[in-house]
Amino acid sequence: MSTTLERPALSTPRKVSPSKDGRTLIRSQVRAGWALLAPALLHSAVFIVVPVIAVLVLSLTDYSFGDTWAWVGFGNYADLFRDVDFLASLWHTVLYAIVVIPISMAISLAVAVGLNQKIRGLSFFRTAFYIPTVTATVAVATIWLWIYNPGSGLANGFLSLFGFAPNRWLADPATALPSLMVVGIWQGLGTKVIIYLAALQGVSRDLLESADLDGASRWQRFANVTWPAIGPVQFFVLITSIVGTFQVFDLVYVMTQGGPGSETRVLVMDIYQNAFQDLKLGYASAETVIMMLVIAIFIAVGRLLQKADAND
């Protein structure tokens, strides 16, 4: 037997003009709100708004730390689209994001589902998956440098057990970027797993039990109950992953310096090179603006996909 609960009819709210005391209360609440927001606003203004404005202005100049500079309009932007290093960096970054984001999200979700079961050694596994996230990237990169060492590295040692010839990994143009992607996927797992795990534990038990009672298979239960329930978290993970992968730098800086040639040169590496090695700050600022736009486009696409998914 099933019971249908009817939603109680809501009465139309009447417009009530607040009393003098009420107005005073609202004003004091507004003031308190602004006071609480002030530190964050000040921080955002100093460390986000001012730098963004500075970057926008600098991108229209040829400033290079010298005594003189000139307005160049959109000259830097025009030059960028003729710059093979920039175009290569943009392509490598997009490729890195397209490969790393879905794979790391899928693996993280699978791991989180596994860790959400009642298995032995749960705490150990949770800690083990989170360790790469709290380890400094330089340390992570150094360990992976050894793993990828063509002469004495673990990767070639492991492959040799199956009779494979040694690979030059980071020194080979064909395998350098994929090798970095593997490290990026591995390093990013911990944070995503924790977020997914929290989301999975928030999925309504009632709904899951109802699905069980209706005879749903494990997959149907996941697809029709769990997946929709963790939708907002998926979007959050997607956005943070897009921002994180587009800002990849330290891993590349330590492991390959963008080489061999420019095979692993990514956007932030190119910006760093132009700004702090070549001292072309105006040019690097234009590159930064383009990076912000590309990230915005990716986030917008992610948002559209999430909306489409929610409407299905």
């Binding site: 290093d85 143009p173 963008g258 080489g259 061999p260 040639g261 420019s262 040169r265 090179q273 090695q277 070549d278 001292l279 072309k280």
Partner: peptide, 19 residues
């Protein structure tokens, strides 16, 4: 030259590796 240093390193490597 500061810009050329990086250009030399990248482009000579690309030539040496046959790219």
């Amino acid at each position: 030259w500061l810009e050329m240093r990086g250009n030399f390193d990248i482009q000579l490597t690309q030539a040496v590796l046959g790219q």
